[in-house]
């Protein structure tokens, strides 16, 4: 199936940054299905993935509508080329040992990832309630309720693992070190953030940094953990330049749509 291309609109791209972050994060979380550390938590992780998929679908449908070329949520999810995805690089990183193409990662990576991303998303949803884009505001309203639970789940586990055994504390520290280089991107502004603020669409990322940091430090403190020093590295997934993992994620995700052009599912 040939790829689709969306029109170059700052508004659409702003929505896609959120949509794609939710989509790829959900995709990684779904890898745990059937492989969780305990049956009850398997069910919980799947619920998180389902919530994020719901948010991704709503945002992708909205983006498609704004784009105005008649595409639907699936065409946007499955038929864009890699540079057109605007998710945070953080959510591409492996989080489970033996994801097919990436041997790194464990449950600690998942909890750290959830904590950092869910807090970031929740702060976004809160701000987006007042967006001039009514569709976006409505999506934020529903997502906020779910995001609160995601943050609570991640925070509870962070404390359990940070203040559990020596091994769990060690793994959490290692997971934080692996994730932290990708934090810079979460709060680095570019032209898209400027445009979003100017049009009243939503917050620029830098505006969320302080609140985010306060919350993360509070949870880490309760977990007897410390945030690593900030890294000078700035990842660029939100500009369409991804890590090596993205190619594998998309190959897996897009395969059927590409292999069966014109297919109905």
């Amino acid at each position: 199936m040939t790829s689709i291309a969306l029109k170059p609109s700052a508004h659409v791209r702003y929505v896609l940054r959120l949509a794609d972050t939710c989509l790829i994060h959900a995709q990684r979380l779904a890898e745990w299905c059937g492989h969780g550390p305990v049956l009850e938590e398997d069910i919980a992780l799947t619920n998180l993935s389902l919530d994020l998929l719901g948010q991704a679908r709503a945002l992708l449908s909205h983006a498609a509508q704004l784009d105005g070329q008649g595409f639907d949520e699936d065409q946007l999810a499955f038929l864009r080329d890699e540079p057109a995805y605007l998710n945070l690089t953080l959510v591409e990183q492996p989080m489970r040992r033996s994801s097919a193409h990436a041997p790194g990662g464990d449950f600690a990576d998942t909890i750290v990832r959830n904590l950092l991303v869910a807090t970031w998303l929740r702060l976004h949803w809160q701000q987006l309630l007042g967006s001039r884009d009514a569709g976006l505001a409505a999506i934020a309203g529903k997502a906020l309720k779910e995001a609160r639970y995601h943050v609570e789940h991640a925070a509870d586990w962070t404390v359990r693992l940070g203040d559990g055994t020596d091994e769990s504390a060690r793994r959490m520290t290692a997971a934080l070190a692996r994730a932290w280089p990708y934090v810079g991107e979460m709060f680095a502004d570019d032209a898209l953030d400027d445009a979003a603020q100017a049009e009243g669409l939503g917050p620029r990322r830098s505006a969320l940094r302080e609140a985010w940091r306060r919350e993360i430090d509070a949870v880490l403190g309760a977990a007897q953990l410390a945030a690593p020093p900030d890294s000078p590295y700035l990842s660029t997934g939100s500009r369409g330049v991804h890590s090596e993992h993205m190619g594998f994620i998309l190959a897996e995700m897009q395969h059927l749509q590409r292999a069966y052009p014109g297919g109905r599912w």
């Binding site: 305990v38 009850e40 938590e41 069910i43 919980a44 619920n47 789940h153 509870d156 359990r160």
Partner: peptide, 20 residues
């Protein structure tokens, strides 16, 4: 029934498992 390490998680898991 379900298995959980503490009361808070028991409530959370009960929500996930028994009230979907």
């Amino acid at each position: 029934s379900l298995h959980a390490p503490d009361a808070k998680m028991a409530i959370q898991l009960a929500r996930e498992v028994y009230t979907r």
